[in-house]
Computed example of a mutant assay.
Amino acid sequence: MRFAIVSITKNGVILADKLSHKLSEDPTVIQVDRYVGDVKDTFMKIYDDYDCIIAIMATGIVIRTICNLIKSKETDPAFLVIDDNGKHVISLLSGHLGGANDYTLKVSQALDANPVITTSTDVSKKMGVDALARKYWLSLSNLNTVKALNRAITDGQILDLYLPTRYDFVEENEIARNTYKFHYWDDNHIRVDFEEISLILNPLPLVAGVGSRRGVSDKQVLNCLEEAAALLKIPVDRLDIISTGEMKKDEEGIIEAAWSLGIPVEVVSVDALEVYIHPDLKPSILVEKKFGVVGVAEPSALITAGDSSRLILSKTSKNGVSVAVAVSGRLY
Rank of each mutant, 00 (worst) to 15 (best):
L93M: 12
V107M: 10
V296Q: 04
P299H: 04
Q31R: 08
D187Q: 15
K219M: 14
I70T: 08
H189R: 05
S94R: 13
T316R: 03
L331Q: 10
H278E: 00
V89I: 14
N101L: 10
T154A: 06
G215Y: 04
D240T: 10
L105I: 01
F194T: 01
K147F: 02
F194K: 04
V81R: 12
M44I: 09
L286A: 14
I175V: 11
V275S: 10
D26N: 14
L23K: 06
T65D: 06
A133F: 05
E246D: 05
P264I: 15
P27I: 12
N223C: 15
R310W: 08
F169G: 09
F169I: 13
N144W: 00
L232G: 01
S260Q: 15
A100F: 04
M44L: 13
D187W: 10
F43L: 03
V287N: 02
S20P: 11
V192K: 12
L239T: 01
G95D: 11
D307V: 15
R166L: 14
V81M: 12
K249I: 06
R191K: 06
K135S: 03
C67T: 13
P264T: 12
W259I: 09
A258G: 08
T165Y: 15
L19S: 06
L199N: 07
A113L: 03
G156R: 14
A257Y: 07
T65P: 01
V275R: 14
F194I: 02
D218Q: 05
K40E: 07
G156E: 10
S20K: 15
V270N: 09
I285Y: 03
H96T: 04
S269T: 14
L93C: 08
L199H: 12
L331F: 12
A110G: 08
D33I: 02
L313R: 04
K219T: 14
D83Q: 05
L204I: 06
S94M: 04
V270M: 05
A272M: 07
A258I: 10
V89K: 15
S124C: 07
A228L: 08
Y276A: 00
P77I: 09
E174S: 10
G211Y: 09
I241V: 03
T154F: 02
A148T: 03
D84R: 10
L281K: 07
T75I: 15
P299S: 14
D187C: 14
Q220F: 11
A4Y: 06
I82E: 03
K135N: 05
T121S: 12
E251K: 01
S72C: 04
K219C: 11
I190F: 15
K73S: 00
F182Y: 10
A272W: 10
V13F: 11
E227W: 00
L111E: 07
D250R: 09
N188C: 15
D187E: 15
S243C: 05
K219Q: 15
K290I: 03
L138S: 12
F79W: 00
